[in-house]
Amino acid sequence: MLELRNVSKTFNAGTVNEKLALDHIDLTLNDGDFVTVIGGNGAGKSTMLNAIAGVWKPDTGSIVIDGVDVTNMPEYKRAAFLGRVFQDPMLGTAADMEIGENLALAARRGRKRTLHWNHSQAEYDVYREQLTDLGLGLEDRMSSKVGLLSGGQRQAVTLLMATLRHPQLLLLDEHTAALDPATAEKVMNLTDSIVTGTHLTALMVTHNMQNAITYGNRLIMMSAGKIILDIAGEEKKRLTIEDLLRKFRELGGAQMPTDRMILG
């Protein structure tokens, strides 16, 4: 489904701030894989997601999604394959547009946009049902501006937008990190039910080790731009926070997890 071959990226090359953010990454995701990604600050987790999303081009290597080499494809074209949810709830939606309009935009991801009316009534009926499933009372607020919603509500809408058209790959970049614990849990449960319920292939970066263990069928740990741990199946199910902490400790002080990662 997703193949990263030898992907590298250096930021600020040739300056004192030069940083090797991705160091020859190789990663293959199978159809239906729900992979959680952990690692310290600056380990390259978000950078890897941005490389896949096409925010910029990698220095080396190639990226293949669903058999299509997308390495040279601009971000907006790659979007045809991808659903994305960002850490900042403000980033995933257009604040000055209505909830329904945002969903209608997302429903046309990867399609040619025409001079037809932006949305149909039939479409809105479907959205209303899907918003009802979120359980946040948003189904009655289709014509409210998204900017009026709370962070958690916006993140739930973004999640719905990312999966409205079945994406080949769902990219979740610490999408619960900016939410309060109760809301974060709600959004996390929602994420799990959508991903497992519709058999999505997903890559979820998280700061929360418990979430990384609880959710998904595979876990990878990154450090200094490399994937240093890749655990799947039964082995992942037996994984504990202590195991992960031990692994972090082996890496030395610089990579010690923060309290936030342990406590969630």
Partner: peptide, 28 residues
């Protein structure tokens, strides 16, 4: 009329949130 169409709505989204627009496949 124009800003109510698919293209028009994508134009409004471009001004409102370019990053989100690209993520939704809009050529900003």
């Amino acid at each position: 009329w124009f800003f109510g169409t698919e293209i028009g709505a994508s134009l409004r989204a471009t001004g409102n949130n370019p990053g989100m627009s690209r993520a939704q496949g809009i050529n900003t």
